[in-house]
Design a protein around this nucleic acid. Sequence first.
DNA 1: CGCCCCGTTGACTCTCGTCAACAGACGTGG
DNA 2: CCACGTCTGTTGACGAGAGTCAACGGGGCG
Lengths: 241, 241
Amino acid sequence: MGTKPTPRSALAAARSRTPLRSIHGNGHGSGHGTGYGTGLFADCPDLLGTPFSYAREEEIYGEGEDAEFVYRVVEGAVRSHKVLSDGRRQITGFHLAGSLFGFEQGDVHWHTAEALADTRVLIFQRRPIERAATHSAEVACQLWSMATANLRDAQDLTLLLGRRSAQERLAAFLVEVDGRFGGTGTFALPMTRRDIADYLGLTIETVSRTFSQLEEDGALRRSGGRQITLHRARLRHVVEN
Amino acid sequence: MGTKPTPRSALAAARSRTPLRSIHGNGHGSGHGTGYGTGLFADCPDLLGTPFSYAREEEIYGEGEDAEFVYRVVEGAVRSHKVLSDGRRQITGFHLAGSLFGFEQGDVHWHTAEALADTRVLIFQRRPIERAATHSAEVACQLWSMATANLRDAQDLTLLLGRRSAQERLAAFLVEVDGRFGGTGTFALPMTRRDIADYLGLTIETVSRTFSQLEEDGALRRSGGRQITLHRARLRHVVEN
DNA sequence: CGCCCCGTTGACTCTCGTCAACAGACGTGG
DNA sequence: CCACGTCTGTTGACGAGAGTCAACGGGGCG
């Protein structure tokens, strides 16, 4: 062995064995309370995913590559982004446990996806899913509703980037992340300042300064950079609408 | 009469008559070369739309309203936007002839839609469409693909707003509009400077100054504010990537 | 142990926003 | 027909918010 496994090889291996096992041996089967098991959708057990893993900072797919697979995050976190030729980068979304990513219009990815942290995913072939969609209105409706949800997120981000100040952007972002982590108000950010900056259309320096400012205002407390405790009422007051 | 017709009343009127006629009497039937006729999709003649008209600056639906209808532009132009409580506005899209808008996630609109100019649309009830989608995989797939196309546009806008300068934003916008009008390089903008500014996350003054700057650089020529002739090679060079 | 990366902070710059004035187009009504 | 007000678009002067460049501390990893 020694050569790095690819999604394709993992898929071939999975098909030659029954039952399905993770290539990393951590095949507990059902994901982290997402209620999906290894199926694409909760009520669609015939589209099974193959477990796969990516290391921190590893690329999952690149812009322009053939969109052969789609992915569901089981554990860890992934970012999708686009880059301009001069290196400016815009992250269009973070995918945490449970979220599905990799669907694009057309046959190639128009984003790059990378693992923020060591990440376990389920991989699904795109073709069978699309074939299933053309036969099953139910599958197609689920895909539609997923796309619509993503669309709403993208448009919220549009408003954030077009019309909000640095402070409002960061506050909204933190409230959003808190919500995705259960809304306890305390969590560890899985992404770096650079990732946050490239998501919010800012620079790392501005993000850092804005963190300090929010802390001065008593809207949050930092313990060691990534670990955050929010004062949610004050943060929401910053976001206001 | 004298009371303003609503989509609901137009629909009721349409159903009491056969064949279908526009409430404004301009019922040439098939739309402007979009190839759709009055059907929702080209190959889906059973979902028929009712012609309806809106005056310049008239609201079609508001954020938070019940999403009872969806719309296809026959002639004219429409903008979708969101507003913050302090009045800051972000336009998330312009809908020109042929484009379908008004689909949202959930039962209420999360945007406001307004006619930029006098506009003729076809109105479709949302419920029957959704019912059709749950029965017909083909309809559902069309809806999915439409949502995915919108998603790509929204993410392109995200990159524009997050990482591009005023000049790049305006140049990209003009190239985009030119493309939608057939790519001749000469057209009349259907929207005001304010609309452009609110789409590009800028102010009207910056838009105006950037127009002047692009004109100085020989990237376009203005004849009377709205009428534009692009020097497409130079504009694309500004956009670069 | 040392290097590198991440995060923070300071000083300065610059793009874009704000405030203001003005010109031209348009519609209305005297 | 012209005076008037309004709306759109342009331009100038100025200011503020975010970007750039640079230095530095701390922690993790080889």
